[in-house]
Design a protein around this nucleic acid. Sequence first.
DNA 1: CAGGGCATGGTGGATTCCACCATGACGCCA
DNA 2: TGGCGTCATGGTGGAATCCACCATGCCCTG
Lengths: 226, 226
Amino acid sequence: MASPSVQPTNAAPRARIAVIDDHPLVREGLAARIAAQPDLEVCCEAADSETALKLIRERTPALAIVDVALKNGSGLDLIKALAADGNGPRILVVSAYDEELFAERMLRAGAHGYVNKQELHGSVIEAVRAVLAGEIYLSAGLAQRLASQAVAGRRSTQGLEVLSDRELQIFELIGRGAGTRVIAAQLHLSVHTVESHREHIRAKLNLRSGTELLRRAVLWTFESRG
Amino acid sequence: MASPSVQPTNAAPRARIAVIDDHPLVREGLAARIAAQPDLEVCCEAADSETALKLIRERTPALAIVDVALKNGSGLDLIKALAADGNGPRILVVSAYDEELFAERMLRAGAHGYVNKQELHGSVIEAVRAVLAGEIYLSAGLAQRLASQAVAGRRSTQGLEVLSDRELQIFELIGRGAGTRVIAAQLHLSVHTVESHREHIRAKLNLRSGTELLRRAVLWTFESRG
DNA sequence: CAGGGCATGGTGGATTCCACCATGACGCCA
DNA sequence: TGGCGTCATGGTGGAATCCACCATGCCCTG
């Protein structure tokens, strides 16, 4: 991939793109848009991070569009795995949450762009091209917010930014209604590990009971409409 | 609905469909699928309930595909408004949540079908056709759960009307995040009593785990009490 | 009166929670 | 380079809980 083949715009072959999202409709929407471009094409699709990883390694797309919340392993893991591969595809994250919360983490984990599903009129393609060209792409509002945040160096906010990646990930799953054992299975972790994370989350968010935790998580997921 | 005017399937013209979703990508995915059918076509799209209402009244589609969570008015309002119009389009709800909670509300508000975004490989079109044909369409898992609920004994299961006073009271406390022991203390009851009520609530609402109960209770308190 | 729903409580076994603890990996910084 | 903190991963054991039955008493309605 680092080989001199990654410049498709001037040649005949289209840039090959992987679409990873657990909503079939979103996949199709993306695929339709991409297919409509003369210089881009979809080379594979997947709904969960495992098959995604497999497919991407096998088909070596130039870019992968990844949703934050997948079935297994939640996108973040996928991104980390891809980044760890070294010469993997460039990565554009699509999310229903426009939380700076996620954007920051995703980018740190190795993503090259972050676009919100909501404000996605024509900008995906724009984002795809930008990321393919080697740039970092952020959807409109996010850039400013991230920047101002970085400048302000803000803390606490009682909010979820105190949580580590793993913790946030688990927090989200809790919000979706998954029990500890389900989460453990889904993330390929020991139940104890998940419980540990749970405990840390509780501590960080100042929640006494697991009930309160679940409540918080459910409300949060609901509010930020996953 | 009983009027003989809405019968597009037998003639040459395609059935005209409105697509209402705040995710552009999902809209496009749906549009692409619909456009691929010989007997269907998209007549308008909208991202919020206001323009949706305006467009639908103006263009009189045979069917409207509506997302639960819109920007303004949350889909539910839209459905109610359309139902109030009397001779509006048939309505198919698409949702990211497979909660019976939502399905119930939507159907009661006047929707004719409810499909989950997740399990949406080819079923949307199927659902569209069914709803156009005058049927009520529910995505797989939901159908059973709702049916078993309806058959199991009582009417409409209006959600919580089946609950006795005590049960509702406890349900609400659960929704506020109170644990069993707290509830017991607060109501001057034995923990066992509360647990019994809990169990009865679960049974009545067809919820499997206590987690589901909590989740549902939290969502309810959030939804209804503003 | 009989039956049904309701509120109250209990028992016992399975599960989950939760407060500690431990280890290895990584990063930071002096 | 070593030390310190954080993170992720796991474990242990006792407390709390869940949950499927069961039991009693009460009130209402047929």
